[in-house]
């Protein structure tokens, strides 16, 4: 079953935030892998730690957050303990990042052509003239009309959707092997969203780029991802092939999450809801973090914290499936 060596491997990642009221554990024992050409979707509600996982991988954790344990390997090489300068090189060359707000990525003072060309000449052995030619090619590829004319425009001269396309071009132009995309379509309108998702998907497929797609939108995941990790309170609740997670969720949280998405094709009198709210990091309950909201919780759930265990076609951190691993294994 063991696939070829994964491109990205995250092992037992733990991120802590020291505060005056004690240390908050923002990510706890997060492990997953992404292979080349694969799209891993990471979903969860706000505060579940999905964006933080992305930030930890690209080495941009906001201080005072720090990686307290675990390791992150890119192509078998540890990248979580690199110095800032080394990490910066990797960020442009091996890992591309796409954020929710394109304005945070683009420098308003430079033309998009210059930003693209500079990124390429920094990381690839090409001449400035070649870089400019390629920059036009990239803009064209991400669907910017009249790319040759638009290359000397400044970011503010583009609309929101077009800017996000530029950001995608910028993230891809140094031909990284991994893209970390954090809510790349959330700030965009539905009709633009669809265009961007289609673009990301086709580019990743064409170039064989691995992608970690962080979003709260299950629809986006269902359309784009190959596998999906569902996060809750800083841990992975369930991880598996996207079809299984979406259609036959195992973990009670995933079941609740899927059930609470309003369906487009019919009207239901009452939506399934998960009562309560995700706990704050300062008050994560003992045992399984989901136990106070879980309809199926039993004694063990309030005592021990479950690890990810094989359950059906996916892996779930749930005591309901504690026995299954052995019988299947």
């Amino acid at each position: 079953m063991a696939a070829q060596n994964p491109l990205l491997e995250v092992r037992h990642l733990r991120v802590e935030f020291p505060t005056r009221r004690g240390t908050l554990v923002a990510l706890d024992d997060v492990s997953f892998t992404i292979s080349a050409g694969e799209v891993l979707g990471v979903v969860g509600e706000s505060g579940a730690g999905k964006s933080m996982t992305g930030a930890a991988i690209i080495g941009l954790l906001e201080p005072p957050g720090r990686i307290a344990a675990g390791e992150i390997l890119l192509d078998g090489r540890r990248i979580d303990n690199l110095r800032y300068e080394d990490m910066r090189r990797i960020r442009g060359k091996d890992i591309g990042a796409i954020f929710q707000d394109p304005l945070t990525t683009l420098n308003p003072l430079y033309t998009v052509g210059r930003q693209l060309a500079e990124t390429m000449t920094t990381h690839l052995p090409i001449t400035p003239a070649e870089a400019r030619k390629r920059a036009i090619g990239w803009l064209d590829l991400v669907g910017i009309p009249a790319a040759a004319q638009r290359i000397d425009s400044y970011p503010h001269e583009f609309s929101g959707g077009m800017r996000q396309r530029v950001v995608i071009a910028l993230a891809l132009c140094a031909e990284p092997r991994l893209i970390v995309a954090d809510e790349p379509t959330t700030a965009l309108d539905v009709s633009i969203q669809a265009q961007i998702i289609a673009l990301l998907k086709s580019l990743a497929r064409e170039k064989g780029t691995a992608m970690m797609l962080v979003t709260h939108d299950m629809g986006v995941i269902a359309e784009t991802a190959d596998r999906v990790a569902v996060m809750y309170a800083g841990r992975i609740a369930e991880i598996g092939p996207v079809r299984n997670v979406v259609k036959q969720a195992i973990h009670p949280y995933t079941v609740g999450l899927m059930g609470s998405i309003p369906p487009l094709d019919r009207r239901v009198e009452r939506l399934a809801q998960i009562d309560g709210a995700m706990p704050r990091l300062s008050a994560i309950p003992k045992g399984c973090a989901y136990n106070p909201r879980c309809p199926k919780a039993f004694a063990r759930c309030t005592e021990d914290r479950p690890d990810l265990l094989p359950a059906g076609a996916t892996q779930a951190a749930c005591w309901l499936y504690a026995g299954e691993g052995k019988t299947n294994g």
């Binding site: 009709s191 969203q193 629809g219 359309e223 369906p263």
Partner: peptide, 24 residues
Amino acid sequence: RALMEAIPDLDMTGRARIPVGGEV
């Protein structure tokens, strides 16, 4: 119709969506 077409498909029927082009 374009708006409805643009919504990601949760049912994973695998239908190819044709997103509406252009911007508002």
